[in-house]
C-alpha cells in the first residue's frame, strides 16, 4: 500500500484522461460485427441455403464470429496504443 501523498501525486501526474475509454477513428471498425449480428439476423433467419452443412442462419453467425476475430486483429495492428506500450 503506497503512502497517501505518493499515491495522490502518482494520480495527478497521469491525469484523469488515463481512465477514460480511448476511442479513435480506426476503432469504428469494431461497430461492424454488431451490425452484422444484431441487424443481420433479421435478414439471415433462414434454413436454406445450407453452407458447410449448416443451416444458413447458423452459418451467418459463425461467419461473423470468425470475422470478429479478423477485425479485431486489424484494429490491434493499426492501433497506435499497442505500439507505444511495446517501447515502454
Amino acid at each position: 500500500m503506497p503512502p497517501a501523498p505518493d499515491g495522490l501525486a502518482h494520480q495527478w501526474s497521469y491525469g484523469p484522461a488515463q481512465e477514460v475509454l480511448d476511442v479513435k477513428p480506426i476503432h469504428l471498425l469494431g461497430a461492424i460485427p454488431f451490425l452484422g449480428i444484431l441487424g443481420g439476423i433479421f435478414f439471415a433467419n433462414r434454413v436454406t441455403p445450407y453452407v458447410l452443412g449448416m443451416p444458413f442462419n447458423l452459418f451467418w453467425l459463425v461467419m461473423w464470429v470468425v470475422l470478429i476475430s479478423a477485425i479485431m486483429a486489424v484494429i490491434y495492428r493499426l492501433d497506435p496504443a499497442n505500439r507505444e506500450e511495446q517501447s515502454s
Binding site: 475509454l21 480511448d22 476503432h27 469494431g30 460485427p33 454488431f34 449480428i37 464470429v65 470478429i68 477485425i71
Partner: peptide
C-alpha cells in the same frame, strides 16, 4: 464474441 469486441476498450 461481441463482448470481446467491447473488452478491447
Amino acid at each position: 464474441s461481441l463482448a470481446y469486441v467491447l473488452s478491447y476498450w
